[in-house]
Design a protein around this nucleic acid. Structure first.
Length: 263
DNA sequence: ATAATATGGTGAT
DNA sequence: TCACCCTATTATC
């Protein structure tokens, strides 16, 4: 689940549900030892940057969470059920509780560490004021394939394997095109599309990239099998041209694309 | 019961 | 490029 849209969605929910009052912070699993130092303190803010989640407490202390591939956040109303053995961090107040499970990172950092973290992230299409041109500077001088650059969090923050495949398909762009050979207008189109798709992802909590005309089913609710053009559709027909969708390894991850539509 | 898989990232080689 | 970390779900034996 966790590409940038999921992180921003969690940040938004936790902002309205937990910020501005004291929160209980616990680590039922026992692997987030600093929980005790924050327990009962006021939560001052929650922010998402790309795939990183930051909970601010007083004294410029932050809980830095990264879900990685397996991490999940589960939020529900009180009364809380007993925490399972894999709950790294449980946040709670009188009304809500939230369990963090399987994150690749959950640690307490200070303001300097936060600055260093943000400094190595590219612009995040979901953040107001994010500058697409900053990413283009990196893209325009790289010989790496655009499909690798889109996944590089220091180039653009928040895009993952699903959005990468779907954005490139929607842009009709060859995933192997070198960054240097991507035209400015092409990049600006991808950026705008990323903003649109990811905002919709924040709202709905899922990644839907197909236009209604390209779906097999006309139901109002988009079925899972209709949500994507190429992601995880290896061997199936491209929705636009009927070529078989392909999959290969690129930059350590499975890349899905249509060799006919994307040239 | 065991294996394979997944929307991610780091650090060593 | 590889090994590794983290967990739940689904498929396979």
């Amino acid at each position: 689940m966790p590409e940038g849209h999921a992180i921003h969605r969690i940040a938004g929910q936790h902002r309205t549900r937990f910020v501005g009052g004291p929160v209980s912070v616990a680590s039922p699993q026992g692997r987030f030892l600093e929980a005790a130092r924050l327990d009962g303190r006021e939560l001052k803010g929650v922010e998402a940057y790309g795939k990183h989640l930051l909970y601010e407490f007083d004294g410029r202390r932050y809980v830095h969470v990264h879900l990685g591939l397996f991490g999940k956040v589960w939020t529900a109303q009180q009364p809380a059920s007993p925490a399972g053995a894999t709950v790294r961090m449980r946040l709670s107040n009188d009304v809500w509780y939230s369990d963090l499970i399987g994150p690749t990172r959950c640690r307490l950092i200070d303001g300097d560490q936060r600055s260093m973290l943000l400094a190595r992230l590219g612009p995040d299409p979901l953040r107001r004021g994010a500058d697409a041109a900053l990413a283009l500077v990196r893209i325009a001088k790289s010989r790496q394939p655009i499909a690798a650059l889109l996944m590089d969090q220091s180039v653009v923050a928040g895009i993952g394997n699903v959005y990468r495949a779907e954005l490139l398909f929607r842009a009709a762009l060859d995933p192997y095109r070198a960054g240097v050979d991507v035209r400015q207008e092409t990049w600006e189109g991808i950026w705008d599309d990323a903003r649109t798709l990811m905002r919709s992802g924040v709202r709905s909590g899922r990644i839907v990239t197909t236009d209604p005309a390209d779906r097999e089913h006309l139901s109002r609710a988009v079925r899972a099998t209709d949500a994507h053009y190429v992601y995880r559709r290896t061997g199936r027909w491209c929705r636009r041209c009927r070529t078989e969708v392909r999959a290969t390894d690129l930059a350590g991850r499975t890349l899905y694309w249509c060799p006919t539509c994307q040239t």
